[in-house]
C-alpha cells in the first residue's frame, strides 16, 4: 500500500498488519486447480456436508486473477506443469498455495516418466496436505493452518 517501508517495525505497523491479515484470512478466494482423484474429495469438502465456507473460503473463482489461494488438487504431469506455472504467475499478490494430496506434494506413488515429483519443484507451496486423497477434515485443518500462517505474516510481505 506504499506505507510498508515507513511503518515496518513500528507499533502502528504491527497493528495494521494484524487487521489486514485478519481480514485476509477469512476471505480467501480460492482457485481450485483440479486435475485428478483429489478433486472428488475437494467436491465433498466444498459441498454442504463438510462446507468449507464455514471457514471463510467459500467461493471458488475460476479465474486466477480473482483468486488469492491456489489449491493444486491432484497429480500434475510434466505436460500440465507449464499451465500450472502460468496460472500461478497470473495470480495477484498476496497469494498462497496449498498442495492438496500426496501427488501434488511429492508425486505420490507415481514415480515415473510423466509425473512432476511435487509441485514445489515448480511453484512455492505454503501448506502440504498428505493423504491419497486426504479426508475433508484434513483439508479443513490445512485451511486453518494456512489462516494461522497468514495471521503471522509481517507487513512488508503484503505489498
Amino acid at each position: 500500500m506504499g506505507l510498508e517501508s515507513n511503518l515496518t517495525g513500528t507499533f502502528v505497523g504491527s497493528r495494521l498488519s494484524d487487521a489486514l491479515n485478519w481480514a485476509r484470512k477469512y476471505s480467501l478466494f480460492q482457485y481450485p486447480f483440479v486435475t485428478a482423484c483429489c478433486g472428488m474429495e475437494f467436491m465433498s469438502t466444498a459441498c454442504s456436508h463438510y462446507d468449507i465456507s464455514r471457514f471463510g473460503a467459500e467461493i471458488p473463482r475460476f479465474s486466477p486473477r480473482q483468486a488469492d489461494l491456489l489449491f493444486v488438487v491432484g497429480t500434475v504431469s510434466h505436460k500440465l506443469a507449464p499451465v500450472l506455472r502460468k496460472v500461478y504467475e497470473q495470480m495477484c499478490d498476496p497469494k498462497w498455495v496449498v498442495a492438496f494430496g500426496a501427488c501434488a506434494s511429492s508425486g505420490g506413488f507415481y514415480d515415473n516418466y510423466c509425473t512432476v515429483q511435487g509441485i514445489d519443484t515448480i511453484i512455492p507451496v505454503d501448506v502440504y496436505i498428505p493423504g491419497c486423497p486426504p479426508r475433508p477434515e484434513q483439508v479443513l485443518d490445512a485451511l486453518m493452518m494456512l489462516q494461522e500462517k497468514i495471521q503471522r505474516e509481517p507487513l512488508e510481505k503484503q505489498a
Partner: peptide, 28 residues
Amino acid sequence: GYLHRGFEKSCEAVTWTQVMPFTDRLNY
C-alpha cells in the same frame, strides 16, 4: 494427456497385487 500418469509403466514395475491401488485411481 494432461493427466497421463504412466499407469501401464507403473504396473509393470509392481506385483500383481500391488497394481490394485493404481486401478483405484483410473476411474476415481
